[in-house]
Design a protein around this nucleic acid. Sequence first.
DNA 1: GATGATGTTTAGCCACTACTAATTCCCAAT
DNA 2: ATTGGGAATTAGTAGTGGCTAAACATCATC
Lengths: 228, 228
Amino acid sequence: MVEADKELTSAVEDYLKSVYAIEVEGGRATTSALAERMSVSAPSATAMMKRLDELGLVERAPYHGVTLTKKGRLCALEVLRHHRLLELYLADSLGMSLDEVHAEADRLEHVLSENLEARIDAALGYPTHDPHGDPIPDSSLRIPASTSRSLVDLDLGDTATVARVPDGDAALLRYLSEIAIVPGQELELVKAAPFGGPLTVRTGTGEHAIARELAATVGIESSLSTDA
Amino acid sequence: MVEADKELTSAVEDYLKSVYAIEVEGGRATTSALAERMSVSAPSATAMMKRLDELGLVERAPYHGVTLTKKGRLCALEVLRHHRLLELYLADSLGMSLDEVHAEADRLEHVLSENLEARIDAALGYPTHDPHGDPIPDSSLRIPASTSRSLVDLDLGDTATVARVPDGDAALLRYLSEIAIVPGQELELVKAAPFGGPLTVRTGTGEHAIARELAATVGIESSLSTDA
DNA sequence: GATGATGTTTAGCCACTACTAATTCCCAAT
DNA sequence: ATTGGGAATTAGTAGTGGCTAAACATCATC
């Protein structure tokens, strides 16, 4: 804690988000992985990782990628909290659709004051999950464990409730919304093609075949209580 | 219309706001006026005015200041619309106080999509004035004429309704709120010290003497109809 | 009409964030 | 143990937006 917390630029925050996301997915945050995710060239990613290292936000091993420091992880979680609170607020309070909220939140997240963050949090009743089903870090930046089961874990005939859909791809989210695969909706696995083929699910809008890789990104929880 | 509308940076938008504000106040947008208002050095202001000129946003006469082009005025009005819609939304829908909304809106205004702007506009019922009483440009960027009478135009014993308070100075707004000089409140002029001295007004919280220069920035309208 | 105060611009600099081209490193395969 | 290919880094450049110091216009005053 030698230095006071300086304001981070939007670019720094965006890179931190990417490093965090890669770590959560279990990968090592390499230059190429970062560059890919941020849609920048490899040298740009290298330069930024040097800066993050100097800022004490990551631990950098040249040629071997970076890992978040405690400080870096907290900054990433703060931005993630902003992002997910905003997504939920835009969806619930302003009626934006699932596929629109991500891009908007991506810009707003960097200019949200702590004051406004707290007001939004309160207005939403201190929510724990965003509209895609992803967990929202609380005000102490603790984050609930996310659902571990996905659509591919269902057996034929099983029913479940959608708990999470992947964020960030607007076209994909529009498609999933069309076929009623959105958090809270019930569905049933009715067919599973062999050899890694598509899964067919029955939703409120009928039966739909979706690729197995896509199904793996759809989180579910058991439809335990249909009753109150 | 040679070039497509490129995205303007936040800095460009901020300078446009300042040029607009200076023009509305009837002044010429000189380098020093801009530098003062933006809290930057004179050379920084000169450099930016060159850029705005190249972008076709202002007409620049070296050593004599700039004037907004039609395109520049529309950009300024667009940002102003964002700013004032946000101020009203933050105050009305999220309970922020009059002195807090300006700083927050100053950051959010640059990252508001047209989609979100429209949703906020609708949620507020297509308002015409922000919480400080300043007019909000409509979706075609037409702006209602603002109140022309101020507190200094009152005669002794007159009552009026506060229509506008100056935006941007949080400490001043906290003070005005304390003494109940906020848009919508009634007041009466009870004393006017000679030789440009302070005016004393009776508000909901008692009698308060305020400097004549401050009084000149408080817009009023006649309290015509106290009845329904 | 010359002059000097004031305001404006130029010159040269720095930080941030991106890029391409060229180089260097690492590791796996021979 | 060497080598080749892919990944990462360095080198050099560009645009944005800020700064100080120095040079230059403008205009009111004499």
